[in-house]
Lab assay of single mutants.
Amino acid sequence: EINVTSHGEEQAKHWIELAKRMNLDVEVEIHGDKIIITIK
Protein backbone atom coordinates (compact mmCIF):
# COMPACT_ATOMS: atom_id res chain seq x y z
CA GLU A 1 0.00 0.00 0.00
CA ILE A 2 1.39 3.39 -1.03
CA ASN A 3 0.26 6.74 0.35
CA VAL A 4 1.01 9.80 -1.74
CA THR A 5 0.27 13.34 -0.64
CA SER A 6 -0.07 15.51 -3.70
CA HIS A 7 -0.12 19.28 -3.73
CA GLY A 8 -1.35 19.60 -7.27
CA GLU A 9 -4.05 18.16 -9.44
CA GLU A 10 -1.63 17.33 -12.27
CA GLN A 11 0.59 15.32 -9.95
CA ALA A 12 -2.46 13.55 -8.53
CA LYS A 13 -3.70 12.64 -12.01
CA HIS A 14 -0.27 11.25 -12.83
CA TRP A 15 -0.39 8.88 -9.84
CA ILE A 16 -3.97 7.82 -10.57
CA GLU A 17 -3.15 7.06 -14.22
CA LEU A 18 -0.08 5.10 -13.16
CA ALA A 19 -2.08 3.01 -10.69
CA LYS A 20 -4.82 2.32 -13.24
CA ARG A 21 -2.24 1.17 -15.79
CA MET A 22 -0.90 -1.26 -13.20
CA ASN A 23 -4.45 -2.46 -12.34
CA LEU A 24 -4.21 -1.26 -8.74
CA ASP A 25 -6.99 0.10 -6.57
CA VAL A 26 -6.81 3.80 -5.84
CA GLU A 27 -8.53 5.78 -3.10
CA VAL A 28 -8.47 9.56 -3.29
CA GLU A 29 -9.15 11.86 -0.36
CA ILE A 30 -9.16 15.62 -0.62
CA HIS A 31 -8.24 17.68 2.44
CA GLY A 32 -8.24 21.33 1.50
CA ASP A 33 -5.33 21.85 -0.88
CA LYS A 34 -3.84 18.42 -0.22
CA ILE A 35 -4.83 15.38 -2.24
CA ILE A 36 -4.10 12.10 -0.49
CA ILE A 37 -3.89 9.09 -2.76
CA THR A 38 -3.79 5.55 -1.38
CA ILE A 39 -2.69 2.88 -3.85
CA LYS A 40 -3.34 -0.74 -2.88
Results as ranks from 00 to 15, higher is better:
residue 33 D to E: 08
residue 31 H to C: 13
residue 6 S to I: 14
residue 13 K to V: 05
residue 29 E to D: 03
residue 32 G to E: 08
residue 26 V to M: 04
residue 35 I to Q: 01
residue 17 E to R: 15
residue 2 I to Y: 06
residue 30 I to N: 01
residue 14 H to K: 12
residue 7 H to F: 12
residue 10 E to A: 09
residue 25 D to A: 12
residue 3 N to R: 13
residue 15 W to S: 03
residue 11 Q to N: 08
residue 28 V to A: 01
residue 23 N to W: 15
residue 31 H to D: 04
residue 34 K to S: 05
residue 21 R to D: 05
residue 19 A to M: 14
residue 27 E to H: 12
residue 34 K to A: 06
residue 38 T to F: 12
residue 18 L to N: 02
residue 31 H to L: 09
residue 8 G to T: 11
residue 30 I to Y: 07
residue 40 K to I: 04
residue 30 I to H: 02
residue 9 E to D: 10
residue 32 G to I: 07
residue 36 I to G: 01
residue 25 D to V: 14
residue 29 E to Q: 10
residue 1 E to M: 11
residue 9 E to W: 15
residue 35 I to Y: 04
residue 18 L to D: 02
residue 10 E to H: 06
residue 7 H to T: 08
residue 35 I to C: 03
residue 36 I to R: 03
residue 22 M to F: 14
residue 38 T to W: 13
residue 37 I to V: 04
residue 38 T to L: 08
residue 36 I to P: 00
residue 25 D to F: 14
residue 8 G to A: 10
residue 14 H to Q: 10
residue 24 L to W: 13
residue 28 V to H: 00
residue 35 I to R: 01
residue 4 V to M: 06
residue 17 E to L: 15
residue 33 D to V: 09
residue 3 N to G: 06
residue 5 T to E: 07
residue 31 H to K: 09
residue 33 D to N: 10
residue 11 Q to G: 07
residue 30 I to M: 03
residue 40 K to F: 11
residue 32 G to T: 05
residue 29 E to V: 10
residue 6 S to P: 06
residue 32 G to N: 05
residue 23 N to F: 14
residue 37 I to M: 03
residue 24 L to Y: 07
residue 30 I to R: 05
residue 8 G to Y: 13
residue 12 A to V: 12
residue 7 H to I: 12
residue 4 V to D: 04
residue 19 A to E: 04
residue 38 T to C: 12
residue 27 E to F: 11
residue 22 M to A: 02
residue 29 E to A: 08
residue 15 W to T: 02
residue 2 I to L: 08
residue 36 I to Q: 02
residue 24 L to I: 08
residue 40 K to Q: 03
residue 9 E to G: 05
residue 26 V to R: 00
residue 39 I to F: 12
residue 8 G to L: 15
residue 23 N to D: 03
residue 33 D to Q: 07
residue 39 I to V: 04
residue 1 E to C: 15
residue 16 I to R: 12
residue 6 S to T: 12
residue 36 I to A: 01
residue 32 G to V: 09
residue 5 T to V: 09
residue 21 R to L: 13
residue 15 W to R: 08
residue 9 E to C: 15
residue 22 M to K: 02
residue 33 D to G: 05
residue 8 G to N: 10
residue 24 L to D: 00
residue 21 R to S: 05
residue 18 L to Y: 14
residue 1 E to H: 11
residue 8 G to E: 08
residue 1 E to I: 12
residue 20 K to N: 07
residue 18 L to H: 02
residue 13 K to Q: 05
residue 38 T to E: 01
residue 17 E to T: 14
residue 28 V to P: 00
residue 25 D to N: 10
residue 23 N to R: 14
residue 25 D to T: 14
residue 18 L to A: 02
residue 22 M to R: 03
residue 14 H to A: 09
residue 1 E to G: 09
residue 2 I to K: 08
residue 39 I to R: 01
residue 21 R to N: 03
residue 26 V to A: 02
residue 17 E to I: 15
residue 36 I to L: 05
residue 26 V to I: 12
residue 23 N to A: 11
residue 9 E to T: 09
residue 18 L to K: 04
residue 9 E to A: 11
residue 2 I to V: 10
residue 2 I to F: 10
residue 30 I to K: 02
residue 35 I to F: 04
residue 3 N to P: 07
residue 20 K to V: 14
residue 25 D to S: 14
residue 2 I to R: 03
residue 8 G to S: 11
residue 10 E to S: 09
residue 11 Q to I: 11
residue 14 H to L: 12
residue 22 M to G: 02
residue 37 I to Q: 00
residue 10 E to T: 07
residue 16 I to D: 03
residue 23 N to I: 15
residue 28 V to S: 01
residue 40 K to L: 03
residue 23 N to H: 06
residue 10 E to L: 08
residue 39 I to Y: 04
residue 22 M to Y: 14
residue 21 R to I: 10
residue 28 V to Y: 02
residue 34 K to C: 15
residue 10 E to R: 06
residue 1 E to K: 08
residue 38 T to M: 06
residue 18 L to E: 02
residue 31 H to N: 07
residue 29 E to W: 14
residue 15 W to M: 03
residue 31 H to W: 12
residue 4 V to I: 09
residue 32 G to F: 11
residue 29 E to R: 10
residue 8 G to R: 09
residue 1 E to W: 14
residue 38 T to G: 01
residue 10 E to G: 06
residue 7 H to W: 14
residue 38 T to P: 00
residue 24 L to H: 01
residue 16 I to H: 02
residue 5 T to L: 08
residue 20 K to D: 05
